[in-house]
């Protein structure tokens, strides 16, 4: 039993990272109807930035904050320079574009001497520490992931339900034309959404860094974030969060109880099951989408 609880805890921690990446994907999708296949790479860039900043002498927390702010700016710039010009083009073109952005990001990081082909570790002030409760152990890295995700979700809830900008993002995700009529500039709103999404990706990257180390293929975690978003209904923020955590726990259990390889298949088995049993996802919007 204790072993199972331990597994679940570890799964929740990893699942939180999937959830954060999925959250960024869903945010951009709801606001701009663009599926961003580069979200995993944005996370990777955030992690690399944090590593670079700490090796430049910044303390962990300062590097964390700076990486998040810089990635938010990068997200807004990406929207302004790359995505805004293709707005209104066929979905397929935009999908290819985000895939291309992801590949370019990996290529660019790989081309930087010192960064490229190596694996880096991010020094944290809580390295090696762990929390104990009875026989349960939770590493400080994992505890940090869970706690930060919880705080971030609280902050996002306050943002979406308590601020003007958050309200406008919700409104525009339901009815873009309606938002225009209210005087909302969709272009600026899209920039803000991309900034928020890239900032969340950076947080995910910094949280994951001490667990998996930092390398150019980190962004492949996007392959787990997509199933997480689909499980949650691909349009629901709480759904993305729940989907990520479910996925993390299932993977962790599959890796322990099932033969080798099952772990990597588990995510997709869960997606298939959810799509068969509840095609709209666990957290489908209460009202059907207006087209």
């Amino acid at each position: 039993m204790i072993e199972f609880v331990q597994l679940v805890l570890g799964g929740v921690a990893v699942g939180c990272v999937y959830a954060l990446v999925a959250l960024g994907i869903v945010l951009v999708y709801k606001a701009t109807e663009t599926v961003n296949f580069a979200q995993g790479e944005l996370m990777m860039l955030g992690a690399f930035l944090a590593v670079a900043l700490t090796s430049a002498g910044l303390p962990y927390w300062a590097a964390f904050a700076a990486a998040v702010v810089l990635m938010a700016l990068a997200g807004a710039a990406l929207e302004r320079v790359v995505l805004r010009p293709v707005l209104g083009r066929p979905q397929f073109a935009i999908v290819m574009l985000t895939l291309g952005i992801g590949l370019m990001a990996r290529g660019l990081v790989a081309a930087v001497p010192e960064w490229g082909a190596q694996t880096h570790s991010l020094e944290t002030p809580f390295a090696g520490a762990s929390l104990h409760a009875g026989e349960l152990t939770l590493s400080a890295d994992h505890a940090m992931v869970i706690a930060t995700t919880a705080v971030l979700c609280g902050a996002l809830t306050l943002f979406f339900h308590g601020t003007r900008l958050g309200l406008a993002m919700r409104a525009a995700s339901q009815n873009q034309l309606g938002a225009c009529y209210m005087g909302v500039s969709l272009a600026r709103l899209h920039s803000a959404v991309w900034a928020l999404s890239a900032a969340i990706a950076a947080i995910a990257g910094v949280l994951l860094a001490p667990i998996t180390f930092v390398h150019t293929n980190m962004g492949l975690i996007g392959l787990k974030a997509f199933p997480a978003a689909v499980i949650g209904g691909f349009g629901s923020l709480p759904g993305a969060l729940a989907g990520g955590i479910v996925l993390g726990v299932v993977e962790s259990a599959a890796g322990f109880y099932l033969p080798e390889g099952a772990k990597d298949v588990a995510a997709w088995v869960v997606v298939l099951l959810v799509l068969m049993l509840r095609p709209a996802g666990m957290f489908a919007d209460a009202a059907p989408r207006r087209v």
């Binding site: 409104a171 938002a179 919007d285």
Partner: peptide, 8 residues
């Protein structure tokens, strides 16, 4: 068509 925000 009113263009309201149905879930708000």
């Amino acid at each position: 068509g009113r263009e309201l925000f149905p879930l708000l």
